[in-house]
Write a protein that binds this DNA or RNA. Sequence first.
DNA 1: ATAAAAGTACGACGCTCGTCAAACTTTGAT
DNA 2: ATCAAAGTTTGACGAGCGTCGTACTTTTAT
Lengths: 105, 105
Amino acid sequence: MERTPSHPQVSQFNLQQVLEALVDPVRRSIVAQLDAADEDIACGAFDIAVSKSTATHHFKVLREAGLIRQHYVGTSRMNTLRRAEMDEVFPGLLDALTTPQAQGR
Amino acid sequence: MERTPSHPQVSQFNLQQVLEALVDPVRRSIVAQLDAADEDIACGAFDIAVSKSTATHHFKVLREAGLIRQHYVGTSRMNTLRRAEMDEVFPGLLDALTTPQAQGR
DNA sequence: ATAAAAGTACGACGCTCGTCAAACTTTGAT
DNA sequence: ATCAAAGTTTGACGAGCGTCGTACTTTTAT
């Protein structure tokens, strides 16, 4: 188990990869839950209807796209939305997706 | 050949479908070219590196998602970006993707 | 009338993606 | 020491997507 996963730098953010991450509804739900929360959230604490191994996959895709940052606390892996960094590179993108307007569709 | 294809109404726009349309680089390129132009563009006049049948497929996906409007002029099928309508439903989304900032990544 | 131009429709093919179960690893609690 | 909790890894499977070529349709030009 890799305990210190690599995160891309802001300079490496790539639109194609970010969109591929955000096109999946489960992953978009994860992003929305992180955006709505004001604390980090453990992988197992999300409201998603998939198995643990599938969840691991989704978190990996989000992390590698630069959307979330992960770090361990005990056996739990905590997740943070890299909001400011994403906004810096793709201004307006996360706003457009986390709006209640968009959420409703 | 269907000469009057159906276009979704604004009330039917769906985020999942729009993102699935925009995640493909060829389709995003079509949207970008339409956004940059100030006139309608015929299907055959786009700078895309795929066959005609594949192009037809991409235009269909964009149309059914509500991103473009199509109408015939002779044998040519003209395409228009439904910018205002998209902005109304998903404010900021197209802006975020057509920014030179985002284009460069 | 004939032919060219512009797309469309239809299969078909490969590849990727989301999904899961099972086995494993690491940490923390008893 | 043991055991439970939380994720990860691996391999597999099925579905869907992007792609193409070929045949077809509709319109326009000759």
